[in-house]
């Protein structure tokens, strides 16, 4: 596994901001304008519909966004620390999500597996809302020590990742399922 060197906090946060900007733009220009039937159509291989992909991401956002906000409001370390070094576990989780590194399927935990009968429009609206919130968190994090401040993971409150790793992991996970949703879009006749 590629081990990460220490890097500039600002560089990391602004590249993550660009990634979120891209997800927002895609959600606004593509997903919010699709008919509900298209959004709800199961993938040709029987996999998730586009709405399910986004609902899956929303279910994580519902946990992580408040957790990140709490962490930013209760920071540790030194706000002037400009360096960030990924922790081994945070790096492992992020690598796991990278679409380029593995196309391996992971089974989602039950409470993050959305049912097919969704209110597709509401799902897209929530996704957009969450990305806007994530963007605000990234900006606030510039004045936070993202190396020392930690956020618990969704599966156990005893495991806490560095704030910088939580952002990396969450946004890589978003990218993974945005790609999945976009793959369906190519296959779906509009």
């Amino acid at each position: 596994m590629k081990q990460m060197k220490a890097m500039s906090k600002f560089k990391l946060l602004s590249s993550l901001e660009q990634e979120v900007e891209k997800h927002l733009a895609e959600a606004v220009s593509v997903f919010q304008n699709l008919p509900e039937e298209t959004l709800l159509k199961p993938a040709p291989d029987g996999g998730w519909s586009m709405a399910q992909c986004l609902a899956h991401l929303n279910s994580y956002g519902r946990f992580y966004l408040p957790a990140i906000t709490y962490a930013i409001n209760h920071p540790a370390g030194n706000a002037t620390n400009e360096k960030f070094k990924s922790g081994w576990l945070g790096n492992y989780f992020t690598q796991m999500m990278q679409p380029g590194n593995s196309t391996k399927k992971y089974k989602s935990p039950k409470d993050h597996s959305p049912t097919p009968d969704l209110d597709a429009r509401a799902v897209v609206a929530e996704f957009i809302q969450q990305q806007e919130q994530l963007m605000r968190c990234l900006r606030k994090a510039k004045a936070t020590d993202i190396n020392a401040t930690r956020v618990p993971v969704s599966i156990s409150k005893w495991i806490r990742l560095k704030l910088g790793d939580t952002f990396r992991f969450l946004i890589a996970h978003n990218e993974r399922h945005m790609l999945q949703a976009k793959r369906h879009l190519i296959l779906c006749p509009l």
Binding site: A27, V28, R121, A125, I128
Partner: peptide
């Protein structure tokens, strides 16, 4: 509608997102 989240369009038009 291709550029801004629909919630702003809804609030401009004085209606709920639903």
């Amino acid at each position: 509608v291709n550029r801004i989240p629909l919630k702003y369009v809804a609030s401009y038009l004085g209606m709920s997102e639903e």
